[in-house]
Design a protein around this nucleic acid. Structure first.
Lengths: 143, 143
DNA sequence: CTCAGTCAGTTTCGAACCAGAACCCAGATG
DNA sequence: CATCTGGGTTCTGGTTCGAAACTGACTGAG
């Protein structure tokens, strides 16, 4: 009984992986930069990076040959995690904020705080979480 | 250096909390039902439920007095986690799926697979993750 | 009344995971 | 040569996890 969600959580469901991915989205690429940026211990960073690479979320690329040096960057699958990341960050900012230091995510073009919703392209409408159903992929009957 | 995201992850960033919240969204309320539904060990369930209650995600309510029995249900803050949950589930289904048993989230009204985007109410437009900026809450200047 | 069963935990104890510090190694730099 | 840098690995204690068994308050059947 290993659902996809369980496998997802095994991959990114720990305190560090999400922080690593956020750092990567901000442009951090190198081992020591992750270390300094996150304050993560090196052995754990080694471990998490390997797991993320194995899971297809990040890719390890050699960026110079002679002293062989590597950088870690997000794959398209990793970048596709950003809506999840944003949703988590937004939830924290709204429900766990404690004072001044907090950050609001805004539409870069105009500075308005973004909203996140579900969109049905068939009905051309947005809707909330109560209007969601989960159906097995194979016997899906929708249009 | 404890960001809100770090505190969020301390609260729900482990393998079980998210699964507990999903079960709660499906209507599971009682201790043993969580146990059976998730296959979680009892001490860990005790621990997680306490943490979620302390964190304001779930509420513990006595539903009968004489053998004092409790049920755990999501608070509004807990229900507000569903966009994050949906984003994570969707990511897993698209990037980690392995075959038949998977589930697709659809708009209940019509059965179309839902999409999830960012919406700017000022610009009346949807946009992708690259158009997001994070700004400190206090010196936000947007309209 | 006795016996089995339910519900919500707590106890016990070995396995896994964590953080920090020290160490290693290849090349570049001085 | 000595030192520095990037990218790790090893070692050490401490915390946390998780499976199974135990507790304890009750309920319902016979």
């Amino acid at each position: 009984m290993t659902t996809t969600l369980e496998r997802t959580l095994k991959l990114v469901g720990d305190r560090w992986s999400i922080l690593i991915i956020r750092a990567a989205l901000r442009g951090v690429r190198r081992f020591d930069d992750f270390c300094a940026d996150l304050g993560i211990a090196r052995p754990i960073l080694t471990n998490r990076l390997r797991r993320l690479v194995d899971g297809g979320v990040m890719a390890k690329e050699q960026y110079q040959a002679h002293p062989p040096r590597f950088e870690y960057r997000l794959t398209p699958a990793g970048i596709a995690l950003s809506p999840a990341l944003v949703a988590i960050i937004r939830w924290g900012e709204h429900h766990l904020a404690d004072g001044e230091a907090d950050i609001v995510l805004v539409h870069a073009a105009c500075g308005t705080e973004l909203e996140q919703g579900f969109w049905c392209r068939h009905c051309s409408t947005t809707f909330g979480p109560t209007a969601i159903r989960g159906v097995p992929a194979r016997d899906r009957t929708g249009p």
